[in-house]
Amino acid sequence: MVRSINNPGRSIEISGFCSPAFAAVKDAFYKNFTARGEVGASVSVTVRGETVVDLWGGNTDAAQKEPWQKDTICCVQSVSKEITALAFHMAVDRGLIDVDELVTTYWPEFGQAGKEKTKVRWLLDHRCGIPIVAGATPGMAYDWTRMTEGLAATAPLWEPGTTPCYHSANYGFIIGEVLQRVTNRSVGEFLRKEIAEPLGIDCVIGLRDEEDARVATFLDKEDHISQAWIDEGTNIFAKSWKIFWDDEDFNSREWRRAEIPSVNAHTNARALARICGVLACGGAIDGVRLLSAAAVERAAEVQWTGKDVQDRLLSLSLGFLMPTENFPSTGPRTIGMMGAGGATAFADPDLHLGFGYSMNAMDPAQSGRQRPQALVAALNSCLGR
């Protein structure tokens, strides 16, 4: 596992742009480095499609010698689910998928072992009951066919549609297979061609060799609470994570090259803020339309709120986290996702605001949220909230 060094005396340089009206965000970003253990990170905010904050700083490596650059990208963990859900809703908007149809309409092999009547919407809102894949073995996650065939054969832990359970590792494979069946493109291919290229952003699932040089080393996994869950061994999260190599630190070649749409998108805050800007502005930004306004409204329909079977307080729409006390945001109708260690992205349709934060050192705090919480608190102060 790669750990960052303890270097409290290092010099921190923040680069980029920040509108004077949002100076408090820059101050909070700087303090994340000096007081909250940040190693390398970026933060960005768009309002009505205009970038008002675009900052980056710190280092991309454990030794804290290589500077974070404007085009540095890093793994954003579960924020990947938000990106994948956006792609899925684009297919829904095109009439390729109906969220109230049975999954077997698009993926016939899924209809076995008690999943025959599973609806598409239950895939999106984490109620399909297969957070653990049957026959999980280390390394399975890096093979799309093994994962999707395994998930198709898996019996649900509960009757589909009845029990909320955050599908940490499997979510992207489940909705990604449906997306692939109707578009004839993998999630990574769809993301590159249908989202990243039109928006002019760095955002990939499945890195290419030539992109490695711009990727920040992911750090401090063993200090994060998720490692303790994995080490405990018998909980749902630990069992769901058995599809990865035991020593996976989110830097391996297999991790970077594979398409694992639940957790291995590589991007930066600038890209996340633009993606969220699309959701915040009725489906379009800078003249680029990805979704209809009606599709955005549908995606934001809350499906359940409360504690799931893993005792996580969550509010889920059709693929996105909605506001709770655990999800820092700027308003009651924000839609987004947060990733293990701190990465955060959300859209606020009332303010037409997109927010993105990415980092390479997992926050060791129990909640793992102190750095994004500080940034969002500063953003709220700028907005008079």
Rank of each mutant, 00 (worst) to 15 (best):
I5S: 07
L313R: 13
T104K: 10
C276N: 14
D202E: 14
E325K: 14
F29S: 00
S186P: 00
D350L: 11
E66V: 15
V215R: 05
R3P: 00
F173C: 03
V2K: 15
I175D: 03
G336H: 03
R253Y: 12
F17L: 14
E82S: 15
I130H: 02
R185L: 15
E248D: 13
T104Y: 02
T217Y: 03
M1D: 11
E109S: 13
Q303S: 11
G114K: 02
P198F: 07
A265G: 05
I230F: 09
G331N: 04
N235A: 11
A343Q: 10
R214K: 14
V99Q: 07
R185A: 14
S186D: 04
L314F: 06
A343W: 00
T305G: 05
E254F: 12
S44G: 10
P160Q: 06
A299N: 04
L291C: 08
R36K: 15
N380S: 13
S168N: 11
G306V: 06
R385K: 14
F17W: 07
N380A: 13
L353Q: 01
M140K: 06
R181Y: 06
F250D: 09
E297R: 13
E109K: 12
L191N: 03
R146V: 12
V53L: 09
L383V: 08
K115I: 07
M140W: 04
M338F: 10
S317I: 08
T334Q: 09
P156N: 07
E297A: 15
R270G: 08
S252F: 05
I205S: 03
G331P: 03
G277M: 09
G282M: 07
E159I: 13
A377P: 00
T344A: 08
V302P: 01
F346M: 11
K221L: 15
A21G: 11
A280E: 03
M322H: 05
E325S: 14
P108C: 13
C75W: 00
A343S: 15
D223E: 14
G16F: 04
